[in-house]
């Protein structure tokens, strides 16, 4: 009987222990994007300054960085300088910002104050954010020249992380 109880106990606890050990290093709040290694959604976004829009597929043939941001998001403000610098030093990569849950006026005045090296687009109906599966801001997607999402970064980017992710998008 004792052996039986032990066997049942082990059968229940060992798989749970295995699950615990397997996931010890994982960030519980990070949910892997199912879009990695998939073609980037061909969203159309309106230019922030009005007049004209961008169909994402028109940028095929060059690496693209899509950064979802908002003026109310402190980490977005933190990473703004790194993104602007990276856009200036990597002319072969197209950077674009998508304003998430914010007004065009706020975004324009933020960019006027802090400067920018790339275009930002409005996503008033949230279709771009939904198509990219955005949970919050900042989220940045790295797309290779073939239009495939190679990586996604959640949180504020710094120079080193950007450099590493850009190298992956260039491959």
């Amino acid at each position: 009987m004792n052996k039986g109880v032990l066997a049942v106990g082990l059968a229940v606890t060992l798989p749970l222990l295995g699950l615990l050990l397997l996931n010890l290093g994982r960030n519980p709040s990070a949910i892997a994007s199912p879009l990695i290694k998939k073609p980037a959604p061909d969203v159309r976004m309106k230019n922030l300054s009005g007049g004209g829009s961008l169909q994402l597929s028109s940028l095929r043939g060059q690496p693209v960085v899509v950064n979802f941001w908002a003026t109310w998001c402190i980490p977005c403000i933190q990473e703004h300088a790194a993104l602007t610098a990276a856009a200036r030093t990597n002319p072969d990569v197209t950077f674009l910002g998508v304003v998430y849950e914010d007004t065009t006026e706020n975004a324009l005045s933020f960019l006027a104050q802090r400067g920018s090296a790339y275009n930002s687009y409005a996503d008033d109906d949230g279709k771009a954010a939904i198509a990219f599966g955005v949970y919050g801001v900042p989220e940045t997607f790295f797309i290779d020249a073939a239009g495939t999402i190679v990586d996604k970064y959640v949180g504020p980017l710094d120079d080193d992380t950007l450099f590493a992710k850009l190298s992956a998008a260039r491959k």
Partner: peptide, 9 residues
């Protein structure tokens, strides 16, 4: 469509 971008979650 939503599952494609957000996963089964």
């Amino acid at each position: 469509y939503f599952e494609r971008s957000y996963g089964e979650f």
